[in-house]
């Protein structure tokens, strides 16, 4: 959430605006920092191929898959899965949590921090809060 205040505003006015906007940001901290840009980019690179450009589990690869990819926009389905399990399934793959082998392990491609950010992003996508 970046706002460009322009170059020619008087300093006083500028600081007043900055103060105002930081108060606003503090008020909606949860929404403003729901996910990182990196998580979005990682999702678009690695996840979209199966989970879909609309995050609905209907990716370009899903047509012929014997087990359909998880619909990340499904608040109920996603809401039932704890964060820890989502982290594990991304890092170690579907088999690690008794799910499909078609979900591969991404632990060699993304580090733990990136995967944690991705978990937060998934919570944003499903609008299903954060389950420990």
């Amino acid at each position: 959430m970046k706002t460009n205040f322009g170059q020619r505003l008087p300093l006083l006015l500028k600081s007043a605006l900055l103060l105002g906007s930081s108060l606003m940001l503090a008020g909606q901290a949860g929404a403003a920092e729901a996910y990182t840009e990196r998580a979005l980019r990682n999702y678009d690179t690695y996840c979209v191929q199966c989970h879909g450009i609309n995050r609905n589990g209907r990716g370009i690869n899903s047509r012929d898959m014997s087990v359909q990819p998880r619909d990340h926009s499904d608040a109920k389905g996603m809401g039932d899965i704890p964060n820890e399990e989502i982290f594990r399934v991304i890092k170690e793959g579907g088999l690690a949590v008794n799910k499909s082998v078609l979900m591969p392990a991404w632990g060699n491609v993304m580090n733990d921090e990136e995967i944690r950010e991705l978990v937060a992003y998934l919570r944003f996508v499903c609008k299903c809060g954060s389950t420990n």
């Binding site: 979209v48 879909g52 450009i53 609309n54 609905n56 209907r58 990716g59 370009i60 899903s62 047509r63």
Partner: peptide, 9 residues
């Protein structure tokens, strides 16, 4: 890719 009423195309 783009979305469709079924899978992405």
């Amino acid at each position: 890719v783009k979305g469709s009423d079924k899978e992405d195309v």
